[in-house]
Design a protein around this nucleic acid. Structure first.
Length: 267
DNA sequence: ATGGTGGATGTTCCA
């Protein structure tokens, strides 16, 4: 028996509903965490997602921006009571608890603020908000260390390792790869998580999940970054069977600029 | 140094 967890920044759920069957065919996710759904809760396309086989659905959305949704083929309960990270309820976090053969699995779905263009919190409030968000999440997990059977996944909007970007040197002062961000993300992860994708892909190997729309030919220039992550608590590491980063999705017609990432656990 | 594209929105903001 296995459990596949997938994460995708879908960049508008309603616009890309028609791509989900391709994701499902390729990855067969038992749990799918979506970010940038860009749909208010009242307009959430629940029936369409149920038709794709997701019987458990939770979402936190707003008009035009942000938004997260977690879908599963088996029942879960939404876990409430977490802080509003970043001091603003702009629909960037959702936690659910899924019953599995090894016990309840707590699954966090995060959409970390992108942070704007200027990597200076004094000059750029969006960057300051991103840093504050990361620090608040780190402090929360430091004060409430993740117990066993916990997963963090989502668009964390930071590429932590040198080979998580196309050019470490050239991106050191580009938002998503500045030292203050990569150190902040590492401090969050170090509260009790293992990078499940890098468990399979050695750090010497370049590995990306996002390629900007602003390139004529994303595949030729290959100026990617690894912004999307799946982390697990150490007790789950022996159960990790594989990871799939669905690079082909970047070529889907009218696709997202992010591609889905998945890991499979042997349960 | 600059601008490049895409989505939601509404005559611009965000990524």
């Amino acid at each position: 028996m296995s459990l596949t967890l997938a994460s995708w920044n879908i960049n508008s759920l309603r616009l890309r509903l028609g791509l989900l069957p391709r994701l499902i065919e390729a990855l067969a996710p038992d749990v799918l965490a979506l970010q940038e759904t860009k749909v208010p809760d009242a307009l959430f396309p629940r029936l369409e997602l149920e038709a794709f086989g997701f019987t458990a659905i939770a979402h936190r959305g707003m008009k035009g921006y942000n938004g997260v949704a977690t879908l599963a083929r088996r029942p879960f309960v939404v876990r409430e009571g977490f802080p509003v990270f970043g001091g603003r309820e702009d629909c960037r976090h959702l936690a659910v608890e899924l019953a599995t053969s090894i016990g309840p699995l707590l699954i966090h779905n995060f959409y970390v603020p992108a942070g704007g263009d200027i990597p200076d919190p004094e000059a750029n409030p969006k960057f300051a908000h991103k840093l504050a968000f990361i620090e608040e999440v780190r402090a929360y997990f430091a004060a409430h260390p993740p117990k066993a059977r916990t997963v963090v996944m989502g668009d964390l909007n930071i590429a932590p390792l040198p080979n998580d970007v196309w050019s470490h040197r050239q991106l050191l002062d580009v938002v998503s790869h500045t030292p203050v961000e990569t150190e902040g993300l590492e401090a969050w992860r170090a509260t009790g998580f293992v990078d499940a994708v890098r468990h399979f892909v050695p750090p010497e190997v370049k590995h990306f999940t996002w390629w900007s729309y602003r390139n004529r030919d994303w595949k030729v220039s290959d100026r990617g970054r690894r912004l999307d992550h799946i982390w697990v608590t150490p007790d789950l590491v022996p159960l990790l069977r594989r990871q799939v980063t669905l690079k082909e999705a970047r070529d889907w017609e009218r696709g997202s600029d992010h591609v889905p990432v998945a890991v499979t656990l042997d349960l």
